[in-house]
């Protein structure tokens, strides 16, 4: 091999080295391709192995009964997961209602309002928020926020008691471990993710569009409304979906603050559960079919989050292509 590098080396050695080098090259190529394929292999294995293990639980209830059954009673071998699906959807959607506007605001502040030096500090704050482990959020949530916020919930329930509709959603409560607390924690955890993607999206808005808006006499807010937001809409939808996917899969923080009831309630101040959280909560005391059912919830969760993430990526990519087209 070294012979190929020295010019005075005889030709025959050259050829021998050449053949070996080619073999090494091919071997290396196979090695890195295999490493790349690991992603697909692992994803495939997740789907197959967990589905096989979860099969007894699925067949006990039937796939439909498992997803939409409303009674979860492991002692009677009844496994309806709809209350958990409901909890997952409710908490993550409320979390997005809070987190998406806030994240867009932060991203706008960083890209349009803040001075260059302030920008660095704000980005650091958001990055720090992203590095806090979820279990720490759960710990602060359950030991600090829950006791402090329960009276506030009660006050709010009393406030809206005369309003029909609202009083069903925000009803009497005696616990701070509920859907809303879980949603708040999820919102805080989703903010860094959505903010970072929103910033990337805003960065692709052509400078000329912004300058044109200012030249027409627009105020900063009018420029944001007229130039930045229409341009970024697709990307922001994708960012929100990624945040949603992350919120649906969050386990430990939710397991600590959502309470752990397996019944559904329209009252957001009642305790509930989510698909991810119930796995963590009941894992230790489960066995047999109960374990299979928890794994089956994992399969369901895997399917939902993969679909949402895949769609989000497609939306973001399509928006990117559109924006690059506008740019050139």
């Amino acid at each position: 091999m070294t012979a190929t590098a020295t010019p005075e080396a005889p030709a025959e050695v050259d050829l021998g080295g050449e053949a070996r080098a080619r073999r090494t090259d091919r071997g290396f190529r196979a090695l890195v391709t295999l490493a790349g394929l690991t992603v697909l292999i692992v994803l495939g294995l997740i789907l197959v192995t967990t589905s096989v293990r979860a099969w007894p639980a699925f067949s006990e209830e039937g796939p439909f009964g498992f997803m939409f059954g409303t009674r979860w009673a492991p002692n009677d071998d009844v496994f309806g997961t709809f209350p958990m699906l409901y909890g997952t959807l409710v908490t993550s959607v409320i979390a997005m209602i809070i987190a998406v506007p806030v994240s867009i605001g932060i991203a706008l502040f960083i890209t349009e309002v803040a001075h260059r030096r302030a920008r660095k500090y704000i980005v650091t704050v958001i990055d720090l928020l992203a590095t806090v482990p979820s279990v720490v959020f759960g710990l602060v949530g359950v030991l600090v926020v829950v006791p402090a916020i329960t009276p506030a919930y009660q006050w709010f329930a009393d406030l809206v008691a005369p309003v029909p509709g609202l009083n069903a959603v925000f009803d009497e409560t005696n616990t701070g471990r509920n859907y809303i607390t879980a949603s708040l924690v999820l919102a805080i955890m989703a903010i860094p993710i959505i903010t970072s993607i929103a910033r990337e999206v805003f960065a692709t808005v052509p400078e000329t569009d912004k300058q044109a808006a200012y030249a027409l006499g627009a105020t900063r807010w009018e420029m944001v409304k007229g130039a930045i937001l229409p341009h970024s809409f697709g990307g922001l939808v994708g960012a929100s979906m990624l945040g949603l996917g992350r919120a649906m899969g969050e386990t430990i923080a939710v397991a600590l603050v959502i309470g752990g009831s397996v019944s559904m309630s329209a009252n957001l101040f009642e305790p509930g559960n989510t698909m991810a959280a119930i796995i963590a909560q009941q894992w230790g005391e489960s066995s047999g079919l109960h374990t299979d059912a928890l794994i089956a919830i994992g399969v369901e969760l895997f399917a939902i989050t993969v679909i949402i993430n895949f769609l989000a990526r497609v939306v973001v990519r399509r928006a990117e292509i559109k924006m690059k087209g506008a740019h050139s």
């Binding site: 692992v42 994803l43 967990t50 899969g249 969760l301 993969v306 993430n309």
Partner: peptide, 20 residues
Amino acid sequence: TMADVMTGVPSIVMGLFIYV
């Protein structure tokens, strides 16, 4: 694309996968 999708797979699912 699938690597991006894999970053969104909930960590509990990875745990269940390795368990099984």
